[in-house]
Design a protein around this nucleic acid. Sequence first.
DNA 1: CGACGGCAATTTCAATACCC
DNA 2: GGGTATTGAAATTGCCGTCG
Length: 296
Amino acid sequence: MMNLMHWRLVVAVADHGNITRAAERIGMTQSGASQALALMEETLGVQLFSRESRQTLPTAIGLPVIEQARLMLGALETIRQTVDSVRPMLRGTIRLASFPMVLASFLPPLLRQFNRLYPGIEVVALEVSDDEVETLLAAGLVDVGVVLNPAPERNAGPLGRDAWVAVVPAGHPLALRGTEQGVSLQELSALPFVLATGGCSTNARSLAVAAGLQLQDVRVEVREWSSAFTLVRENLGVTLVPEMTLPADRQGLRVIALAPRIERVFSLVLPAGQTPSPAVQALLDLLADTAHATTR
DNA sequence: CGACGGCAATTTCAATACCC
DNA sequence: GGGTATTGAAATTGCCGTCG
């Protein structure tokens, strides 16, 4: 058996020309070094050093073996330096704030991959509303937050996107309309409306306001998207929801595209003016890599 | 999956040999 | 006699299979 200690010993003996000094340098006893060297030579089947009086010098075959040993130890040192240079970013905790839907859909694959690449970094995910994400970011209480439609200057990492769609009862007059035609925000705002917020301030009402409109007949306002679908099935009104919230079972419902299309973009955003920690930078880099890979 | 025991490899210690 | 290498025995360490 040979281990790294043996190869260090070979190099040390070559450097010092003396087993005693070599043993001291690598932290062995002299007799141990002598035995180890003898064992190596026996294992290799060649004599690496000739023992002369007061000197231990390399043999002809010993010289290239020693050179290879130096290369090997040099490569090991390079590996050490590589690991040392990235070690600070291999440990730590990332506090991430997000609203529930993104936490359940876009983030799990990203976080799974991140956990595989950086097992020493713990990601603590806080499930909050979009307003609360902004509050936590502003207070510096989280390292990164998922924000809807962030301003370009916030240096956001795009996480995903989806479109708003109208959902009407299957028997509704709008349900007869072809999907390519779509329905406008203006048309919807005049109808009996089931307003679902999903716990976000960006919802059908804020979209209408942004377009200079107003929801004229909100029959009921609920937090859960699923509750809204139930109420739409009951013919209480129509609703406007993000596409990703649509249920698998759409019986009794009809989904119509919004015209013109309105999208929401989810992005990872850092607290303002904050330099990302190495761990957060690793997460952003991974996000950029996966985004790059999927848009190629 | 952790505790445990057996076994082999390795290291240490002490004694000895060799050479200048 | 001092410095260095070698040898044999004992101690230590690490690995691996088994068991609960």
